[in-house]
Design a protein around this nucleic acid. Structure first.
Lengths: 108, 108
DNA sequence: TACATTTGCAACCGAAAGGTTTCATAACAA
DNA sequence: TTGTTATGAAACCTTTCGGTTGCAAATGTA
């Protein structure tokens, strides 16, 4: 079982769950009510999110509140950002090239 | 077939392929040589990466060079960064809380 | 106590993922 | 022309994924 953050956010339903509980914790049923799949399906998604640390569950009576641990997304952020400079540089040099081309055309 | 960038980078082999060709384009066989799965398996990964735009293929004779289109990662970056403020704020308020606690202890 | 609510989890299912072997084809080299 | 190299792709297999129904257990309420 691969249970890392990259795999967890690959599923659109799980990304929606995260956005749903990002601002305000919700119990399992409340999360499930917002989708048209079964509660069990959502429960499984929550389990995957919990296993990689993106969600923490806090028991309150018979309810369990799901809280997003957004800082876990830094793993993804770090991985993507290592490439940002590269793609910016490439876009920059493309822009420069186009600017030079434009300048050249003006001279003619 | 879901073929978005999130799903594409969920697989560790595909992330490795990206890092491998980020600086320098490589042909299919050269990419495959760096892994201990079959060339066909790597070819399939490359197909998935191509289908979501993360890789562009350029034919040169009988070889096909794989080039990383890193700017496609901005979709992921945007999605993650929308939450950065939230998780920073929470860490900040935790830090403040701990600082206050420390200040209080000094007084005693 | 009796009943409703909230949840966990087992058992099952079809489709997709990730891998393999095998073969075909196109480009280059001798 | 003959052989080698680089690649695409079909056919197949096993495991994982995302979903279902059904049931048990714990908590709260009338």
């Amino acid at each position: 079982m691969r249970r890392d953050v990259f795999q967890a956010i690959a599923d659109p339903t799980r990304r929606e769950i995260i956005s749903m509980i990002a601002h305000k914790s919700l119990n399992v049923n409340s999360v499930a009510e917002n989708f048209d799949v079964s509660r069990t399906a959502i429960y499984k998604h929550l389990k995957i999110l919990t296993e990689c640390g993106l969600v923490k569950i806090k028991q309150q009576g018979r309810e369990r509140y799901c809280e997003a641990k957004l800082e876990k997304l830094s793993v993804v952020s770090d991985w993507v950002e290592q490439y940002r400079e590269m793609w910016n540089n490439r876009l920059d040099s493309l822009e420069n090239y186009l600017m030079e081309l434009q300048a050249k055309n003006k001279d003619e």
